[in-house]
């Protein structure tokens, strides 16, 4: 089989705020009743975290879960495990209304870090990203420029941005240009 590569193939835009390819990441879309005990157990088994609260992301070292909507989670696992993890979820939820699909290759994954990373993102998204309103582990699906994206903040102050692969180039260039233009000094 051919060697899997990430969408950005290691692209980096260096600066005060660095925009980088976050690399290959296994991503699974899980839809179902998130309050159901079987769903909770299956998520715990695969993602090693409990079902996150509304608009929260629990991610450590590329494994975890993020709250996408009242009936949808984004499950993160190492890339090589994604196919098996999706099958595990489907097996655990057999007979129950659900959907578990490996979407790793449908997505582009970016990391934005450095002093002023909040501003780089806030320039493009209609979201209050001030430290008071958006803290570590907060997760938000929104619009960035003209494309849909999801973002969350980790404990180290780095933002993780997920978007569709089809708008990946657009979003990377948008963030890289915003980073290049420097901070505004709002936050």
């Amino acid at each position: 089989m051919s060697e899997p590569v990430s969408f950005y193939k290691g692209r980096v835009a260096k600066g005060d705020v660095t925009v980088t390819d976050a690399g290959l990441q296994g991503m699974i879309t899980l839809r179902g009743d998130l309050s159901n005990a079987k769903v909770k157990a299956a998520v715990k088994k695969v993602a090693k975290v409990a079902v996150p609260a509304q608009r929260k992301a629990e991610v450590t070292d590329g494994r975890g879960a993020a709250w996408m909507s009242p009936d949808e989670l984004l499950i993160l696992v190492p890339y090589a495990e994604a196919e098996a993890a999706a099958a595990d979820l489907s097996a655990a939820l057999a007979g129950q209304h659900h959907l578990a699909v490996n979407v790793s290759d449908a997505r582009a994954y970016i990391r934005v870090e450095g002093q002023g990373a909040r501003e780089v993102l806030a320039k493009n998204a209609p979201v209050d990203l001030s430290p008071a309103a958006f803290a570590a582990k907060d997760f938000r699906r929104t619009r960035m420029g003209q494309a849909a994206a999801a973002l969350w903040l980790d404990d180290t102050g780095a933002f993780h941005v997920v978007c569709f692969r089809s708008v990946g180039d657009y979003l990377f260039d948008l963030l890289a240009q915003s980073a290049k233009d420097g901070p505004v000094g709002v936050f």
Binding site: P70, E72, R141, T142, A148
Partner: peptide, 8 residues
Amino acid sequence: RHVYGCGK
């Protein structure tokens, strides 16, 4: 519809 968010 929350089209760029939860989709509901």
